[in-house]
């Protein structure tokens, strides 16, 4: 990797809000990318029903997702700088736990929680970029999942319409497509901070 890119990634701090299908996979990708520091937050424990799309293993059922993710990410890179918080995120906690982050990844499941995080980051912080996801349920239709730059500080991934519900399951491949869009958008923001030219071919 180019030294300038490596330097920019090494000094970056990324917050990951939620460690489900999106967050557990975004964390894997950013750990492999060697992003300087990841701050992980989730209140939940691993359940059997999570294993169809989330980056956990059967022997981790019952563990906190934060603990299970820390274990898995350290297997990828024992030197990774990781901080975990077993907490249900509120606006106040978002501002304190993710203080100092360059980018925050919104990786929640519920629509109202997504709204809460995006509103909090945009209205209460300065300069922090939020990468959020809306519309990833079902399978197929990979190319309907897109990354859109809504504003300087908000990037939105997804097809905007496919909510999870009866008959519309969350599946590993399509959640994975969205998670890797999200990780790739974060990489672009962080590397873009180094002033290196990158693809601006977005709407």
């Amino acid at each position: 990797m180019m030294p300038q890119i490596f330097h920019e990634l090494k000094s970056a701090v990324v917050g990951i809000a939620g460690l489900g299908g999106l967050g557990s996979n975004v964390a894997v990708s950013l750990t492999r990318l060697k992003v300087g520091k990841l701050i992980l937050a989730d209140f939940d424990a691993v359940e059997e029903s999570n294993l169809n799309r989330q980056n956990y293993f059967p022997d981790q059922i019952g563990q906190h997702k934060v603990d299970a993710s820390l274990t898995n990410l350290r297997r990828i890179n024992p030197e990774a700088d990781l901080e975990g918080h077993k907490v249900r995120l509120t606006p106040e906690k978002i501002l304190t736990l993710f203080d100092g982050c360059d980018v925050i990844a919104e990786c929640f499941d519920r629509a109202d929680q997504k709204q809460m995080l995006v509103e909090t980051v945009l209205s209460k912080t300065k300069g922090v970029v939020v990468v959020s996801v809306s519309g990833l349920a079902g399978y197929g239709r990979s190319n309907e999942i897109v990354t859109r730059r809504i504003s300087d500080r908000l990037i939105l991934v997804g097809d905007t319409v496919s909510g999870a519900g009866p008959g519309v399951p969350l599946t590993a491949p399509r959640v994975g497509v969205a998670a890797y869009h999200q990780a790739n958008a974060i990489a672009e923001v962080l590397i873009g901070n180094a002033g290196i030219s990158h693809d601006k071919n977005r709407e």
Binding site: D109, R110, S134
Partner: peptide
Amino acid sequence: IELIRFVGGG
């Protein structure tokens, strides 16, 4: 007016 709508799933 920009309205950014969220649907569930993650």
